[in-house]
């Protein structure tokens, strides 16, 4: 008898829940990049506190995962906004269009990718070419591609320290890794004449060389958690780590960013574009949901206000590197007017 009642209650509960779930949503749903996550959540929290709207729910799904959810269709079961640590791909744009989703693109700022080591050791000074030579699976030696022979930094250049190459970085699923490979590795590969020629003749073959990281133990995949990489760097002063600038910013008493191409990864150098290994961060808004889910237009406005993304806004305190004032002006206006993206 008790069992009967329990089962019945559970079933009834589920019915009520399912019926309730079908109702309209009054809370913004955001998905996407884990790099944009700290910024998006900060805006969401402030937005919830200062306006009458509910605090948006922000999920960390990765840029690609976010796009997939975002482009799946129009309706309350699909998210309203997706964050991305890279621009939307044309394949994703087509997917969106096919499912009747029209998009507004908002570029929010920059994120530098740093190579850093413990303060207990000397600061590294590297060129992109040296970064490529240290980390690529195959490197050109005397014009021929061979498996990476360099075991110590001093093998690459006598001015570098006489210690084993040991770099802790994110796994292939990570957006930080994608950006690092594209900006640093590819930038370094282009410096070799033989690879530059290859790039002209066969783009795919070039990408295969430039984007493949060595697997012989010199590059250590340390998971998606950047705090973990920092802890490992502290424990092992010989190792270098790859992660986003905000983690360097928060831990500047323990670790130092390597100088790349004579530029130190500082807030100002990344903002001015002098530090080469940096990428743009975006979020994308589903125009069809504006009006049906309350608060989207206001959220976009809050995100693109000087209080948030300005030079002295609260996002800069969280480590976001702001766009130049002029660009902020143009992008902010376009965003608040919900200008449609076309590709």
């Amino acid at each position: 008898m008790i069992k009967k009642v329990l089962t019945a209650t559970a079933l009834a509960g589920m019915m009520v829940a399912i019926a309730g779930a079908a109702q309209a949503r009054d809370q913004i749903r955001i998905v996407g990049s884990s790099t944009v996550f700290p910024f998006s959540t900060t805006v969401a929290e402030t937005f919830g506190k200062t306006t009458g709207f509910k605090t948006p729910v922000v999920e960390s799904t990765g840029s690609g995962g976010g796009m997939k959810l975002f482009c799946a269709g129009v309706g309350v079961e699909h998210p309203d906004i997706t964050n991305a640590s890279r621009r939307i791909k044309s394949s994703e744009y087509e997917d969106c269009t096919k499912n009747g989703v029209s998009i507004t693109e908002v570029k929010i700022g920059f994120d530098g990718i740093v190579l850093a080591n413990s303060k207990a050791s000397e600061r590294f000074e590297l060129t992109l070419q040296q970064v490529f030579m240290a980390l690529a699976k195959q490197v050109p030696v005397d014009g021929k591609l061979v498996d990476n022979p360099y075991q110590k930094w001093s093998d690459i250049d006598p001015s570098l320290p006489d210690s084993k190459i040991e770099v802790l970085g994110p796994p292939p699923t990570s957006g930080t890794r994608d950006a690092f490979v594209e900006l640093a590795m590819e930038g370094g590969a282009k410096k070799f004449d033989s690879l530059a020629d290859l790039r002209k003749s066969d783009k795919k073959a070039f990408a295969a060389v430039a984007h493949t990281i060595r697997e012989d133990g010199a590059y250590i995949e340390a998971g998606e958690n950047d705090n973990l990489i920092i802890q490992k760097l502290e424990a092992n002063p010989k190792a270098l780590g790859i992660f986003g600038f905000s983690f360097l910013d928060q831990n500047a008493d323990k670790i130092q960013g390597s100088i790349i191409e004579q530029t130190e990864p500082t807030f100002d150098n990344i903002a001015s574009g002098d530090y080469g290994v940096s990428r743009s961060l975006y979020f994308y808004v589903k125009k069809e949901h504006v009006g049906s889910v309350p608060g989207i237009a206001e959220f976009v406005k809050a995100f693109t206000s000087e209080d948030a993304w300005g030079d002295e806004g609260y996002l800069a305190d969280k480590g976001l590197i702001p766009l130049p004032a002029k660009e902020r002006d143009i992008i902010g206006n376009a965003a608040q007017g919900l200008e449609q993206l076309s590709m």
């Binding site: 809370q27 929290e45 922000v58 999920e59 960390s60």
Partner: peptide, 17 residues
């Protein structure tokens, strides 16, 4: 199923995020 998310409100029912 999307429970890895930043949620600033205390959930009030089994349907809330």
């Amino acid at each position: 199923i999307g429970m890895v998310a930043f949620i600033a409100d205390i959930p009030g029912s089994i349907n809330d995020a």
